[in-house]
Design a protein around this nucleic acid. Structure first.
Lengths: 145, 145
DNA sequence: TATTGTTATACTCTATAACTATA
DNA sequence: TATAGTTATAGAGTATAACAATA
């Protein structure tokens, strides 16, 4: 679009797209019986951090459609990891929150992915690990922009 | 698994999983008519960098099953972005490679995702951008480990 | 016997569209 | 009229299983 674009920035775009795509595929491929999906883990983590939220707010936060988030939450609810309660003042809204079992199951059923990545990270030298850790909030900022 | 694990490393695992998952969902949501998927872009990029490859080699490199890569390649082949030719010595294998049109279409049909990310990156300050760029090869190394 | 690729089938995630209930 | 959530349907991406051809 813009012909005066920095070529290094162009390269970063291509490389970053490739890198995160591959890491996600790799993480997804680290599955085990009854493992939670990345979408489910992401929704659980957000509910844990931010407390009860509605379907629409969760969908906005995760950049998916409310109907899609509804499907994610339906799976979690069926497993007893999240529960629903009516919004105190707005009868249309429903608040979803982690159940007591939710936090524990989240740890247990995310274990395979976590352990694979933990091992991979432990193999980086300290300087590289520092760089990567510093980059994490930047990646989050990109995702939210 | 290992009870003596560094808590900071545990936090990095959770944060990195969340961050790359969200960035990928965000990238995927930046679609336009006739846009290529992340899987297709990744396969095209690899064929561009490494030259002709077989289905099985591509699948291994991208951490998906050969049957799944077959589906990705079928879509690209139907659009004329990749072509096939028999392996010179092994009659079982088929080599896939970018067509002349492939490189150009790859640029054009990956444009929406690229431009969104380009804009987001351009909003980082130089130090943060440097950190992020330095982290890209590390993410790739994780994905390949 | 092992490997490459293909076909058939199914599951997950996400999307769009249409509907109901509430504001 | 606008918004929250649900239901129905479809498409992309990936998986497993079974098969044919070649090594």
């Amino acid at each position: 679009m813009d012909p005066s674009t920095d070529p290094a920035l162009e390269a970063a775009v291509a490389d970053l797209t490739l890198a995160v795509g591959q890491l996600v595929r790799r993480l997804r491929s680290v599955a085990s019986p009854s493992a939670l999906t990345l979408s489910q883990l992401s929704a659980l983590a957000r509910l844990d951090r931010q407390g009860a939220m509605t379907t629409a707010d969760l969908a906005r936060a995760e950049s998916i459609k409310p109907q899609s988030m509804g499907a994610v939450l339906a799976g979690l609810e069926q497993d007893g990891l999240v529960g629903r309660r009516p919004h105190p003042t707005d009868g249309r809204q429903i608040l979803f929150a982690l159940t007591p079992a939710g936090a524990e199951e989240r740890r247990r059923r995310g274990a395979a992915k976590r352990e694979w990545l933990l091992t991979a990270l432990a193999e980086l030298d300290p300087a590289d690990l520092g760089t990567l850790v510093a980059a994490i909030p930047l990646i989050k900022r990109l995702a939210e922009s």
